[in-house]
């Protein structure tokens, strides 16, 4: 019985489930499964990118004018933090492959810290100011026209609808990502065999995190760096 033979921990440090030929096939199946989820995420965000392209195309001059309200320096800071967090996450996967728990945990911690920094910048220096300037789509939108930078209020409202939808959905993904990484770090802390003996759970969390980074790579130029 293959399953009994595989339960010998010393002989098989990574548990190969009975439906898989070998560890390569098992790992491949897990990664393909994660990518299947990521494909649904691409479709999820893809529709929003299509909406963005359509309205940017129709209202390019207004989008250019109103985008001056966004601070690209804060966007660049956030991009840097997310790229760094991707790097620390991939290092966590690297050390998980080497089973160096003492190095995995700080890397996961750094990833969560950088993600929290990203949210801090967004929720402290960016979004609250939009509320004060009446730039959140709604009844009072555009009642302080000086913040529209000369754009048509209706087109500006579309811009900020897309802005809050897309960066908001992305922020939700960041929050979920922090929760998942925290759960993973907790499992490492408790020496759960499922993560310490097999790097795949860490790798899959990493895939999710890099995808969140990937979305931001496109959001940053589309919202903060609109050409005239």
């Amino acid at each position: 019985m293959a399953s009994i033979a595989h339960s010998e921990v010393d002989e098989y440090p990574v548990h190969v489930h009975h439906q898989f030929e070998d560890i390569e096939q098992q790992n491949d199946s897990y990664v393909v499964g994660m990518w299947t989820f990521l494909v649904t995420e691409v479709m999820f965000f893809g529709a929003l990118f299509l909406a963005y392209i359509l309205y940017r195309w129709n209202y390019q001059p207004d989008f250019y004018r109103v985008h001056e309200n966004l601070n690209w320096k804060l966007g660049a800071l956030n991009t840097t933090m997310l790229l760094l967090s991707s790097f620390t996450m991939v290092l966590a996967v690297h050390f998980a492959q080497l089973r160096e728990k003492k190095k995995v945990l700080p890397m996961l911690g750094a990833t969560m810290l950088l993600a929290a920094g990203f949210l801090f910048v967004k929720f402290t220096f960016e979004w609250p100011i939009k509320f004060q300037e009446h730039l959140v789509p709604g009844i009072t939108f555009g009642t302080m026209p000086e913040h529209l930078h000369g754009a048509s209020p209706r087109a500006a409202e579309i811009f900020f609808s897309l802005y809050f939808l897309m960066t908001g959905l992305h922020a939700i993904h960041i929050i979920i990502g922090i929760a998942i990484i925290a759960a993973l770090a907790g499992m490492w802390q408790k020496d759960k065999v499922i993560v310490t003996e097999d790097y795949i759970p860490t790798e899959l969390v990493g895939l999710y995190w890099h995808f969140v980074d990937l979305v931001w790579i496109f959001l940053f130029p589309l919202f903060y760096l609109i050409p005239q």
């Binding site: 491949d28 393909v32 990518w35 990521l38 494909v39 479709m43 893809g46 991939v90 890099h210």
Partner: peptide
């Protein structure tokens, strides 16, 4: 990011195919 951080460059053909599927769509 996809090739190096997500290890798709070093993955199997099946993984590469899945990674491309969403973007082709």
């Amino acid at each position: 990011v996809i090739q190096f951080f997500m290890h798709v460059k070093f993955g199997s053909t099946l993984v590469k195919l899945w990674a491309m599927a969403g973007f082709i769509w």
